[in-house]
Design a binder for these strands. Structure first.
Length: 184
DNA sequence: TAGGCGATGCTCT
DNA sequence: GAGCATCGCCTAG
């Protein structure tokens, strides 16, 4: 949960053969221990195994058959908890992102978990990788002034949906989800 | 521009 | 076989 708040303002960097793409993290959701909405709630399975690898690993999974989502694991080895990255503000490699997404609206490039995976060419081959100093995908320190972090209920889930575990940069124009979800 | 709704196919029970 | 941490199109204002 502290990690979720701290991640706002950090920069997710993806190095691919076609070039580098990067974006500032402006929106995340925390999936904590003992959380019914977490994939790890029922214990380890083949799918969620990366969640149990230890802190700062990538957990990438497919949802609704088509979309991919990236998480950053937050607990030590053996404990299943992670932070879902929901939205980025594109910083580097905008043209590459536009080509991959097939759209030209900067605002929509990384607004949503599935979209940012497509824009950064994040695939399941990166699943379980180290996000601190990894070769292809890593998280860099914030380059901008300290963000103003707001919180709200989480988006798109049915269990424990009332918990205020979504954190976002309140000034960002790149958030996903309806604006009606008012800050705390 | 914002909100509603249905298609989608993988994963777990 | 049912549920799902979503997306993009369509419509209304």
């Amino acid at each position: 949960m502290d990690l979720a708040r701290a991640l706002i303002g950090h920069v997710l960097v993806r190095d691919a053969p076609e070039g580098r793409t990067a974006g500032q993290i402006v929106e995340v959701e925390a999936y904590v221990l003992e959380d019914p909405a977490s994939h790890a709630f029922r214990g380890m399975t083949q799918r969620n195994a990366p969640m149990f690898l230890g802190a700062h690993r990538a957990y990438i999974y497919r949802i609704y058959g088509t979309a991919l989502c990236v998480n950053v694991t937050s607990e030590k080895r053996g404990l299943g908890a992670a932070v879902l990255i929901r939205a980025l503000e594109p910083l580097e490699g905008l043209e590459l992102m536009e080509r991959r997404r097939g759209i030209s609206r900067t605002r929509d490039l990384c607004r949503g978990p599935g979209r940012l995976c497509e824009a950064l060419a994040i695939g399941t081959s990166l699943n379980g990788g180290d996000l601190v100093g990894g070769p292809d995908l890593w998280i860099a320190r914030p380059v901008l002034p300290p963000p103003v972090v707001g919180s709200s209920v989480r988006i798109g889930i049915s269990r424990a949906a009332e918990r205020r575990l979504r954190f976002y940069e309140v000034r960002s124009a790149y958030l996903s989800g309806p604006k009606s979800l008012s800050p705390a």
